[in-house]
């Protein structure tokens, strides 16, 4: 009986500790978020003040700068035209070895961006591992590159996704 109760206390303690740990982390994250937003707001206010000042200054000197700014704009235009596009827009597929077999993905790109990645098939991957592994997709999208860290705990499946995306991007590159 004593041992039985002890085991219950242990289990409750462990679950409680993990829950408490999560709670602390989320409250910390919230506090950080508040600070970050505050800082953003401050810098935005500062910028606004600067812009207002600049505006007034520009108004005063409008005539003087008119000629200079038109020539500057011309430069910008030519620069933009010269910039190369990264990809040929479209949807490309790629495949690579995952844990138990081939993982196939479809990657959609615009001229310059990877816009979407979907898994077309991954029949031999374990579901639990695959659901972990797909976390690599947002990482790839935000890095705009397949060269990101794999998901620990689901190394095989996420490596499969990564390599499949790499293969697809090779096809998409100009």
């Amino acid at each position: 009986m004593k041992q039985f109760l002890m085991k219950w206390v242990n289990v409750i303690l462990i679950v409680g500790l993990i829950a408490g740990y999560n709670l602390i982390l989320s409250s910390r994250a919230q506090a950080e978020e508040v600070l970050r937003l505050q800082a953003e707001l401050d810098s935005a206010n500062l910028k606004l003040e600067n812009v207002i000042e600049e505006n007034e200054w520009l108004k005063e000197n409008a005539a003087l700068f008119a000629a200079a700014s038109t020539s500057a704009r011309k430069d910008e235009d030519t620069e933009e035209n010269q910039e190369d596009t990264l990809y040929t827009a479209g949807t490309y597929t790629g495949e690579a070895q995952g844990f138990g077999g081939l993982v196939k993905v479809a990657v959609t790109v615009s001229d310059r961006e990877i816009t979407d990645i979907t898994i077309q098939s991954a029949d031999n991957e374990d579901t639990a591992y695959l659901t972990m592994a797909v976390d690599i997709i947002p990482a790839i999208l935000s890095a705009q590159s397949a060269d990101v860290d794999t998901i620990s705990g689901a190394t095989f499946s996420s490596t499969g996704i990564k390599h499949a995306v790499q293969q697809a991007l090779e096809k998409a590159v100009n």
């Binding site: 993990i18 740990y21 999560n22 982390l25 989320s26 994250a29 579901t127 639990a128 591992y129 659901t131 972990m132 620990s152 705990g153």
Partner: peptide, 21 residues
């Protein structure tokens, strides 16, 4: 993997979310 995941996350100071594991 659930056990490993929980302790890996705590080790790196990240939140333990309800993943499939």
């Amino acid at each position: 993997s659930g056990v490993k995941y929980i302790f890996t996350r705590i080790g790196t100071g990240e939140a333990v979310s309800m993943t499939a594991f």
